[in-house]
Every structure is written in structure tokens, then in C-alpha cells.
Design a protein around this nucleic acid. Structure first.
Lengths: 349, 349
DNA sequence: TCAGATATTGGGAGCGTTCCCATTCTAAAG
DNA sequence: CTTTAGAATGGGAACGCTCCCAATATCTGA
């Protein structure tokens, strides 16, 4: 179909053609009406089996793809899903969460024959353009990840009536989302540290005004409290989910003599370990470190990271499936799904 | 415009509305015709200045955004640009090149009021769907990065007449592209190693059937030859642009006693250093290592990496600008732009 | 054998734009 | 005061599809 091009000669020979026709042309070739072709390509059951095959044959041999713009305009779907990740460059590059998420969402979309339209985090002044785009256009639905608490996009989405699914819950609003149980994850991490005899367990939190940070911190607090420990605020510091932040947070915590740290992602865990090393502190002998994410580097890092593995791929795939379901079935109730995570025990704690 | 939502009450109160109208409604409100509004929003000069202002006022106050599907159907543009990066997961996660590229492309697109549709690398069987999508749809144009030699997408793009720009040249075909001078970069790296007295300089190449690998290898060969060295094929190994590959390549090269390595990206440089360390070899004292990319971790790695810094952000931005230009001006000649790169000297060589 | 149901098909209308041509308005020139 | 070029504006047609209803073909049972 699409030959490779091996030389300039090939290139010049290769003719510019558009072998794709309109539904009307396909109809004529198949000897049926526009409507019948439309039914075939939209899987309408009310078509004679032989007719369907004949049409399908013409469709395939002509490499016909329906025009999405026309389809949308006529009240149909474009098959385009928006993916919005409103975070800054620094985290996008460093946290493995995002590339994996992006990959799993785009892959699943391809599998279910959808395209992905993409928005990365922007300075505030560009948010307006995002909401404009969302509220009109070519999108059948939207997936949004990593929201901050006061992000106006949820309200915009809601107002514009476009189907959407969040990755990570948003306040306690009744919206569609997929998520992990962050509190329980934190509980697993802290409990493990307690089991290994740690007495002064610190935590490095992520970005302040996000559900995910709050939940992990709540889990940390609750677990310690339940074990009969008093919470020492000196053992809590914010790291913004980036390596440098982990380093700085560890520097703040260190004078208060922790014997373990629950870093709420792996990037910060690495930052923390870097600081500890510079102080001549041994990990895990003197201070145990638990991370979060099971980043690709977590296993090969020295020491390899004990960490919580989120099923990021599952989150992305399920978000797509959920959104497609919302688009097609328009259910009345909101859908939620919580995925389980695992504690991966390695060397660092 | 879009208030934040602070509670369930807010949520319930927030009404679902679509305050965006059609061009016809705007026209009525402004007391002009559909055509005039169309002229205004498309910057047609044939509009009375006062009329233009009046229309603009209505447009803004109603938050009107033209329907892209309708626009496309009527022969206009959608303002959507496709970004295709046909590489596998392993590299996407590891090489900083891609997130930075993605970020710079999407940011620039936002700046020039375009949306980005996104395709990541896929197994071969999905390539078909990519070309299908490209050849029809909502896209005004396409940016493609990181092509392999035999990738059929270029031919498909050419045939379908859609404007496109490549990041990294493709064979010697007359197509629009932005690129760096890979041969010269290799020359810089190797020359530097020569200047520091290295005599047995090895290289770890990337993915075999790509221009970029070939060019860097050519540059390596040419520079050594020019300096009067004989090329020793034992000092050349392929690393596939990933850390593991760099490690394995170094393992192959090591028995042949190199005193320096030009790794054609930073991930492989790190892999190579990991191997050398395990052998008790000191970097840079015993073996100097030069990387490529100036990845975020390059500066903080121990030893910090001497590397070539590509202007990735510039490449992405320029690709967008070039594509927009092609879309709007439809120039007859192809456009190329080569960006300069820098050698960043740090500890590893 | 025929009414009535059911399966299948066809075609008009309309989605919201842009493009193009026709019309109206303005102002300068005769 | 009329004519006319040019500026400004309006509206029909078309883009390619889906939806809906009407028309036709086929089948069922009495």
C-alpha cells in the first residue's frame, strides 16, 4: 500500500494521489445508497449480510475512511479524545508517571480506533485557550490527569457537557474517575517501615494543593497514629514531586533525626538518598527510604528502591475505556474505579 | 469565566451551559451577515473598521469559537497539527529528547493557536491506522520525528498531499525538515577526545537504520581518518540509544582496550560508565566518555557528563513555525534549517 | 391468496462553516 | 445631478456525513 522510498528516483516517481473517496462514491461503486454505506461503516444491524460484505469490500479496497469533520458536523463523533495534563515541564520530564500514562492512553486509543489530542501544562494565561478548545470542538471526550485543587478546568468541562474522565479523583465531586487508593498505599509503606523497626518515620510530600499529596499524607498520619506514635511536623516536608525537592526536603528533615523516610515518589526518594549520602548516612542501615511509583530506574538504582508500584498502564487504559463508555452509552451515574497497588521491597528499606 | 469549584454545593449549582453560538447567531447579534462575521474572524481586510470592532466585541463577549469541523468541511483549516513519533516505549521513557520535543512542539502550537494530535510509536500493524488517519482527517499538517530509513510514512504523507515537516532529515529527499548537523557534532566530540590525548577512541552507535546514527558514525570515522587514525571496527558497537544497550556495547568494546568512548546519546553513556565502573575502570582517568543530548541528569550524574547539547526546544518550535508557514503560504520550494549544537565539557572526558 | 408485519433500502434535510458571486452603498469624477 | 469604480456586505451553494422518515421488498400466518 505505502511503499518505502529508497531513492530520489522513487520519490519523484511516487505520485501524489488521494485514493480516498466520499461516502457517495463508495455507494455508487457498491451499487447502494449513501445511507446503506453509512449503516455499514457504523455497524448498524439493519443491513442485509450480503450487502454489508459487498460494501465492506469496496470500502476496504478503496481505503475509504469517513471524513471526521463531516461526521462531527452531522451530529456524529469524531473519534478524537483529548488528553490534558496540566503540569509543568519539570515534573513531566522527571516523573515516569507521565510518559507511561501518555503512552498507555495513546496506545489504548489506537486500539479502540480513536485519536488523541494533547495538551500539556501551561502557564495560567494559556488555560483560557484550553477551556475554549475543550468547550467547542472536535473532541468526543476528555481525559484529565493530575489536577490541582483549584483548577477551573473541571467546572469548564462540566458546564460544557462534554464527557470526561479524571485520572485521580477531584475533591469529592461526583465525576468519573480512575484512581489508586493513595491512603492505603501510604499505609502499606509506613506499616512496612514500622515492621522493620523504624521509630522516627518522616515523609516527603508532593505538591501541596493536590488530592494525591493530601491523601498520601493522611495515610501516613493515620498509620502512625494508629500505631501509637505522635506526629512530629518536623518530620514532614514538601518536595514538589521533583528530585531537587526531595533533596531539599531531606535537608530540612535530617536535623530531626529520622530513621526512615516515606518519599511520595521515586524522584524525591532519589533526591533524599542523594542528600543522605552526602551526609555519610547509610541507606538503608541508618535511614530506610521508601519511594512511590516504581520508576524504571527504581530497580537499577543503588540502592535499589523499595517503592509502591502504581498500575499506571491500567489507569490509562481504563480511563480510555471508561470515557469511550461514557461517550457511547451516556450512563446516568458516574463511574469510579480504584486500582490496587503493590509494595515492592528492595534494598532501600 | 470559569470559576473554581470548592464544594459539592458549588458543583450542583454550576449549571451546564453552552454559551457558544454559531456564526449565524453572532451575526444576528452584531446586526451583520454570516459572511461579514466570517471575514472578521478570518482577518479579511475587506471589512469596515467599525463593523469589525462591533463584530469582534460580540464574538468576545459570547466566547464564540468557530466550529472546526464545519470550518474544515467548508474547505478551511482545523488548526490541528499532527505530531508523530514512531519509536517504541523503551526509548520514549529514557531519552530526554522526546519529552522535551513534545513539550516544545505543544507549547509552540498553543502559542500560535493550534492544537496537537498525537501519535506515539506503534508496532508495525498499527502503522496502517496511522497512515489512514494522516491521509484523511482533521489535520492541517504533520510533524514527524525520528524516522527509520524504511518508514513508509514519508511516502504516505507525500502521496496524500498533506503539508509536513520532519525533525531530522530523511535520506536526501527534498522535503521540509529541521535538523542538527550530526556529522559536525560527532566531529566536535571526537576532536575534543583527540585533543585531550586519547588514542583509541571507540563509539557506541544508536539505531542502525537511521540517518542520525549513520551521520554520527560518519562524523566519527571521518574525524579519526582525518587525524590519521585507522578505523578499528572493534571499537564500534551498537547501543540502540538505550542505557542497557550502552552497557552491552561497552562490554563488547572493552576487551579492545579503548581509552575513550563517544556514546551517541547520554543514556548509552551512562550505560557505558556503569559497565566501566563495574570493571574498576576510572572515568575519565582511564577511559573518557562523551555523551550526546545534554539530558537533565547529565549535569548531576557522577561523573557529570561531557556531552553535546542539542537545541531540542528550538527544533520543536521551528518545526511548528515551518509547518504553519507551509500550511498558510504553500511555498513551492522545500525548507530546511540546521541548528548549531554545543559541546559541553564536564567531568566524564 | 392477501393483509399485515418485518427487513432492507433510499433520499431529503441539516449540521456550521467558507467561497464566490451578486448586490448595495459610498464617494469621487464628469 | 448623474455616472461609475471600488468598498462593503449579503446570501446561495457546497463540503461529506448522520438522522429520520418514507418507500420498497420479503416474509408470516390465517
Amino acid at each position: 500500500m505505502f511503499p518505502c522510498i529508497f531513492s530520489l528516483k522513487d520519490w519523484e516517481r511516487s505520485q501524489k494521489v488521494a485514493d480516498l473517496s466520499t461516502i457517495e462514491e463508495i455507494a455508487k461503486k457498491a451499487g447502494v445508497s449513501r445511507s446503506t454505506v453509512s449503516r455499514v461503516i457504523n455497524d448498524d444491524p439493519n443491513v442485509n449480510e450480503q450487502t454489508r460484505e459487498r460494501v465492506l469490500e469496496v470500502v476496504n479496497s478503496n481505503n475509504y475512511v469517513p471524513n471526521r469533520a463531516a461526521r462531527k458536523l452531522a451530529g456524529g463523533r469524531t473519534g478524537v479524545i483529548g488528553l490534558v495534563i496540566p503540569i509543568g515541564v519539570s515534573r513531566l520530564f522527571v516523573e515516569p508517571f507521565f510518559p507511561i500514562l501518555i503512552q498507555s492512553v495513546t496506545n489504548r486509543c489506537n486500539q479502540v480506533n480513536r485519536s488523541v489530542m494533547f495538551w500539556l501544562g501551561e502557564p495560567e494565561y494559556e488555560r483560557r485557550s484550553i477551556t475554549q478548545i475543550l468547550s467547542n470542538d472536535l473532541l468526543d471526550g476528555v481525559i484529565v490527569s493530575s489536577l490541582k485543587d483549584q483548577d477551573p478546568i473541571v467546572a469548564a468541562l462540566h458546564r460544557s457537557q462534554i464527557p470526561f474522565v479524571l485520572i485521580g479523583r477531584y475533591r469529592d465531586l461526583p465525576v468519573n474517575f480512575v484512581d489508586i487508593d493513595n491512603e492505603k498505599c501510604a499505609q502499606m509503606a509506613v506499616n512496612y517501615l514500622l515492621q522493620t523497626g523504624r521509630k522516627r518515620i518522616a515523609t516527603i510530600t508532593g505538591v501541596a494543593d493536590t488530592m494525591v499529596s493530601r491523601e498520601r499524607l493522611d495515610g501516613y498520619r493515620a498509620t502512625l497514629a494508629k500505631a501509637g506514635f505522635k506526629i512530629d511536623d518536623n518530620l514532614i516536608a514538601e518536595g514538589g514531586f521533583v528530585e531537587e525537592g526531595g533533596y531539599a526536603a531531606m535537608a530540612k528533615i535530617f536535623p530531626h533525626k529520622p530513621d526512615a523516610v516515606f518519599a511520595t515518589n521515586d524522584a524525591m526518594a532519589v533526591g533524599a538518598i542523594r542528600f543522605l549520602r552526602e551526609q555519610g548516612v547509610r541507606v538503608p542501615e541508618d535511614v530506610g527510604v521508601v519511594g512511590f511509583d516504581d520508576a524504571p530506574f527504581a530497580a537499577s538504582y543503588k540502592p535499589s528502591l523499595t517503592t509502591i508500584a502504581q498500575p499506571i498502564g491500567d489507569l490509562g487504559r481504563r480511563a480510555v475505556d471508561m470515557l469511550v463508555n461514557v461517550i457511547e452509552q451516556q450512563p446516568n451515574d458516574v463511574m469510579n474505579e480504584i486500582f490496587a497497588s503493590d509494595l515492592i521491597i528492595r534494598e532501600s528499606a
